[in-house]
Design a protein around this nucleic acid. Structure first.
Length: 294
DNA sequence: TTGCAGGGGTCAA
DNA sequence: TTGACCCCTGCA
């Protein structure tokens, strides 16, 4: 059958999506935007999204989603994998110089996932002054402790707990998940969201600066975490999360001198415009994998 | 083996 | 503008 430009077929518990361009699971799941996907020996990735476990792999233009069905594909995976967006146009748009052309070629299979806003927010609160393997461990520990168990192919997976669940756990228990000084931020943020004092979904309808201004009022959230939350939840494609890596890369490749975070943010807005977030992700992946700025 | 610096930031002074 | 911060890893 055909669905929104893709040729879909179903075999057993697998969905085969034919016609997917600009997608490589390694680029997408290992570029630092998500922390819940595990690489399997065959190069496929298994992860948990919205209480569903799936295994995703790619052969040419055919993407296979195991442990899925047509309904889940339409309701979850199509949007999650950002399949409604034309990446060729984005790549063309942001390939404004040699550096960006190299970065885009290097991470050609990156797609920006439309992740759950709540999980993204907490994940990036954990990311503060932290490294990716550690962030993954902490997110996994929180899920195992407070989430729902899901069995798949003899293994246990766990959904990420909602704000209601996290808001009622004790700080002492949460600290067992090894988030360190970030635990109190997680707990306080959970309470604000669970009580309705902070409405995450409303961010989708606000303009960019208003959404950022609100997010940084949450404990443990500064502009970097706010921008990651907005970008990786598919809310705003035009933010440019600027961490020390991106800062060093921008200084080295564009400014040729030291520059402030604010300066870099403004430059990215002017230079990359509406797709600044995509540019950031290609640049970051390129820089990290090639140790540029290390 | 032990010790120490520092990490994809944020907060408070 | 600057240091502290949990926890873990890498490297003397």
């Amino acid at each position: 059958m055909e669905y929104r430009g893709y040729d879909i077929s179903v075999k057993g518990d697998s969905i085969f999506v034919n016609g997917v361009r600009d997608f490589d699971p390694t680029h997408t799941f290992d570029c630092g935007q998500c922390f819940r996907w595990t690489r399997e020996e065959d190069g496929s990735y298994t992860g948990v999204v919205g209480g569903r476990v799936a295994n995703i792999s790619c052969k040419g233009a055919v993407t296979e989603i195991k442990n899925s069905n047509l309904k889940d594909f339409k309701n979850i995976w199509f949007d999650y994998l950002d399949l409604g967006r034309d990446y060729s146009e984005i790549k063309l748009n942001i390939s404004r110089d040699d550096t960006m052309r190299k970065a885009v070629a290097f991470g050609c299979g990156i797609r920006l996932l439309q992740q759950d806003m709540w999980e993204t927010l907490i994940s990036f609160i954990i990311s503060a002054n932290n490294r990716i393997p550690m962030i993954k461990k902490v997110v996994a520990a929180i899920s195992e402790t407070y989430g729902e168990e899901i069995r798949y192919e003899g293994r246990s997976w766990f959904s990420f707990p909602g704000p209601e669940r996290l808001s009622v756990c004790s700080l002492e228990n949460l600290e067992l998940c090894k988030a360190g000084f970030r635990c109190k931020y997680i707990l306080e943020t959970a309470k604000l969201v669970a009580s309705g004092k902070f409405d995450l979904q409303s961010l989708k309808t606000l303009d960019r600066e208003e959404a950022r201004r609100l997010l940084v009022q949450l404990p443990g959230v500064g502009y970097k975490v706010a921008d990651c939350t907005l970008l990786f939840s598919g809310t705003r494609p035009d933010v440019f999360p600027t961490d020390v890596w991106v800062k060093r890369v921008m200084e080295g490749l564009y400014f040729k001198r030291e520059a402030s975070f604010k300066e870099i943010w403004q430059y990215a807005q002017d230079y990359f415009g509406e797709y600044a977030g995509y540019a950031q992700q290609y640049l970051f992946y390129y820089a990290r994998e090639n140790k540029i700025g290390a």
